[in-house]
């Protein structure tokens, strides 16, 4: 196993939010991620795109140290994940929890503060105010005292987002935050994400919709067990790259969507040039 390279005495060195070196993750015998190298610059909003089973969620879970890593290493702000836990916010998939759980929306958001509090300390009034403010940011404050099963899918996703906001992190990992939400919620969420990016936060978002990906993200990570391509959206979002990532599985519908998206990107560049 490779040992992390620890910088020697260069305290002034600025660490990138996420650096992955030769990462391999395997479920029993089958590798899911293989030889991943990645360096995500600060303030970027990365869309993780790839076909089903490409290991998108696995990558997020591996970064979060929720899965055993077969080889390679991951550093978050220059340290192992455990050491920079408080600087990472997380939005899991909506199906990963039981929505009948006896908590209300505010309780869930308040959980975002717990990591910061550490053991034995109870959430203060300030924590509650912050949680409430986060709910307000996602426009869910009228539902603060609702039990979470009485919220719609999009509202539940907003509560999860509010919880991540309450973590006040520098790096956000989001696992399909747009899955099963209505168009209005999707627009609201992307607005909040852009806002976070403008504050200099780094976002890594698993996304399954090729048509919207180039609109939403300034960087794309094309994943299919390995890194197919990573970089600025206009460089990565090419037909060849997508064909490699999706193999023959790129359906006609996605192809049409893709060509449309490419045209749009080209249009953007032309505009830039003309400016």
């Amino acid at each position: 196993m490779a040992t992390p390279v620890i910088s020697t005495g260069q305290s002034s060195k600025v660490f990138v939010p996420l650096e992955i070196h030769d990462l391999t993750v395997a479920y029993s015998k089958r590798p899911v991620l293989y030889g991943i190298d990645l360096e995500v610059p600060q303030g970027s909003m990365v869309g993780v795109v790839g076909p089903n089973g490409a290991g998108k969620s696995t990558l997020i879970r591996a970064i979060m140290d929720l899965l055993p890593v077969a080889s390679g290493w991951i550093q978050v702000f220059g340290k192992p994940f455990k050491k920079s836990v408080t600087r990472v916010g997380y939005v899991p998939q909506r199906e990963s929890v039981d929505w009948d759980f006896p908590v209300n929306a505010l309780d869930v958001v308040l959980m975002g503060r717990y990591g910061r509090l550490g053991p034995l300390r109870r959430p203060s009034k300030i924590d509650k105010e912050i949680a409430m403010a986060c709910l307000e940011k996602v426009k869910m404050h009228p539902y603060a005292t609702r039990q979470i099963s009485n919220l719609s899918g999009g509202q539940q996703q907003r509560v999860f987002l509010a919880r991540a906001l309450a973590q006040e992190s520098d790096l956000y990992l989001m696992d399909e935050p747009f899955a099963g939400v209505d168009a209005a919620t999707e627009a609201a969420i992307i607005e909040i994400l852009r806002d976070l990016q403008n504050q200099g936060k780094t976002l890594i978002v698993v996304h399954h919709d090729l048509t919207t990906a180039p609109d939403y993200f300034d960087r794309i990570l094309l994943l299919n067990m390995r890194v197919v391509a990573f970089g600025l959206t206009k460089d990565v979002f090419t037909f060849e790259n997508l064909q490699t990532a999706y193999g023959g599985r790129l359906s006609i519908l996605s192809e049409v969507a893709l060509s449309r998206a490419q045209k749009k990107l080209e249009g953007d560049t032309h505009e830039n040039i003309s400016e």
């Binding site: 836990v85 929890v97 759980f101 509090l117 973590q167 990992l173």
Partner: peptide, 21 residues
């Protein structure tokens, strides 16, 4: 003493781990 930790792991174990519990 550990109410908030037990609450969080019960609701969302992945998130709890991710916040360092």
């Amino acid at each position: 003493f550990f109410y908030k930790e037990f609450l969080t792991i019960s609701f969302d174990a992945g998130f709890a781990k991710g916040s360092g519990m």
